[in-house]
Nucleic acid binder design. Structure first.
Lengths: 330, 330
DNA sequence: AGCCGGAGATAAACCGGTTTAGCTAGGGTC
DNA sequence: GACCCTAGCTAAACCGGTTTATCTCCGGCT
């Protein structure tokens, strides 16, 4: 009980393979009456074109790719990516080819392979580096791609991004309005473009600021917080680059007897159930919608639209119980 | 600058396409000296076989599939699946074709399409239903599959599962040993097989138990908890079917002035950062390792091994601050 | 010498589509 | 009536592999 192929349709409809192909793809070259008959036969036989065969003759591969560079174990706690993926899926009828690798070189290798093997029609690029070799790779391969989350434009690639600079500025302004002067930032990986952007924005709007690098893990968040609070001049507010580090920081503060928010205000970048439950003030953006937007951008590129830069809505600061007026003010 | 094809290799090595194919795949029919020369040429030209073409001639598709049936928005909070996926990836060199759909019928449709289109070599089946049509589908299609998380064996399919019955029994016994008599369970979706298994285990070991159905969302957990605590004979302990509902339940308890763990003990099924931070006693299993195990099982099936049922290690109860001796005891 | 067998290679078919070249019939033009 | 065009279709090439049938040596055995 094999699936019917185009040849079976052709035989059943009494026409040639080529005519069937033209009819099914809505292209000219067959009469309307023939087309109708072919469609009729095809649906009655439950015909499904083979994506494999189609991809072979240099047509669409019917899938898009996403490569994540992570130590696999660390991935499970990053709700961000799963939200993003879910959002992408919501706008795509095609499947997503996902692979997790542990190094940048494997990632590059994988793009080349996928492209050479005609496995994907295009890819999403996430975690953009400050000077990212993937941008050049994509244009040299001629591979459609959308940069997700990397502000600004990158070569000829389309990109979907949020204005990290404006967002960071708004957070700092908010803290300043509460009377905070000495503000710290526990940053993400320094190699990532958005880290640098946020660093710059932070430094340009803060009065008396300090930046500590982190890597998004609870351990890093805890260590950084401990260092800051035990320093000579502890900050009265800390802005963390993700939810996991912020929660860890809040716990360290509690263990050190530093009251939140009375003595220390805490802001997390990217909201999540973790922040909601910990009552942390957080910079919230709709990651799901962001993913959906990225998917639409990639689909547009695949359909031949010229690549555009789409700016996502500005993340919104959700004030919860972890921020208050600076000590000694008001 | 096209990628080299098998024809280019053949020409460069001075042999036929067929010989190249045999040589590259390590099959007999070519001399060792020829094989060496072909391999040499292939690597010097940077040759990569096209997975597409290879899949077309009824060989491997080089990918396995996973379909998740969810309202896409709800997915992002389910760390479980992302952990699982990460674990699967850690054991697979091939890519994972992932698609999120919103109905069971779409899911079925998708399996048929993937199989017909030669897109995947096999699939993971998750969220097994009590009487799941997918089991019959897989064997009628002859599609390799591994049931992930469905206890017991299902037709001729391999399966990887944890003993929900024993785990639930151990949780209840633990609570009983603390003096709890009236114990409630906030369950997951009633249509899922593991929900039924846990229900049965719960009812058979509990003395005075009540089960409320939920759907894994915070809202459901909160509503169920409110109902239980405001009832005529509130339980002294509640076991939740996932972390999100447990955390929501803990908050409801707090808002109702019910002290945890003094007046109410709480246990969550499946540990997570959420439980860790909320200091909830949780039934912890290594979801990442579980995914890895599932991947190995599928790979084994793909390699022709006869399907086996692999039982995962028993989840371990991690006691934190949300469980204590029952009120009026000790 | 004649026959057989197997190793080593090649040519060709095949997988299931797309695409192009070519053929045929019918209608319009001059 | 000769000529040209075009719509509508077919046959065949092609995509990049795998697989099968076939062909050619060459050595061993009787």
């Amino acid at each position: 009980m094999k699936r019917p192929t185009i040849k079976d349709i052709a035989a059943a409809a009494g026409v040639s393979k080529g005519a069937v192909s033209l009819a099914l793809n809505g292209r000219s070259g067959v009469s309307e009456v023939t087309r109708a008959r072919v469609l009729e036969v095809a649906s009655s036989l439950g015909y499904r074109p083979s994506a494999t065969a189609r991809a072979l003759s240099s047509a669409s591969a019917g899938a898009v790719g996403l490569v994540l560079v992570r130590p696999p174990r660390a991935l499970g706690d990053e709700a961000f990516f799963f939200q993003l993926i879910a959002g992408m899926q919501s706008e795509m009828s095609s499947a997503l080819l996902l692979q997790v690798v542990s190094s940048r070189s494997e990632e590059i290798e994988l793009y080349q392979r996928w492209w050479a093997e005609h496995r994907v029609d295009g890819v999403f690029l996430v975690d953009l580096l400050v000077s990212d070799p993937r941008v050049a790779l994509m244009s040299s391969l001629g591979m459609p791609a959308v940069v997700v989350g990397g502000a600004g434009h990158h070569g000829a690639l389309a990109s979907v991004w949020a204005d990290d600079h404006a967002a960071m500025t708004s957070v700092v302004e908010y803290l300043k309005s509460l009377g905070h002067r000495r503000i710290a930032r526990v940053a993400g990986l320094p190699s990532l473009l958005h880290t640098v952007r946020r660093d710059q924005a932070f430094l340009s709007s803060v009065v008396d600021g300090v930046i500590v690098a982190g890597d998004y893990t609870a351990e890093a968040g805890a260590a950084a917080t401990r260092m800051l609070l035990e320093g000579a001049v502890p900050p009265s507010a800390i802005v963390y680059d993700n939810d996991v580090m912020a929660v860890a920081g809040a716990e360290v503060a509690a263990s050190l007897g530093v009251a939140v928010p009375a003595e220390l205000s805490i802001v997390a970048w990217d909201d999540s159930v973790l922040c909601q439950h910990g009552r942390l003030t957080a910079l919230s953006r709709d990651t799901f919608a962001f993913g959906a937007r990225a998917a639409r951008a990639l689909l547009a590129v695949l359909e031949g639209a010229s690549p555009t830069d789409v700016e996502d809505v500005l993340p919104e600061l959700v004030v919860r119980g972890s921020t208050a007026v600076a000590p000694g003010v008001g």
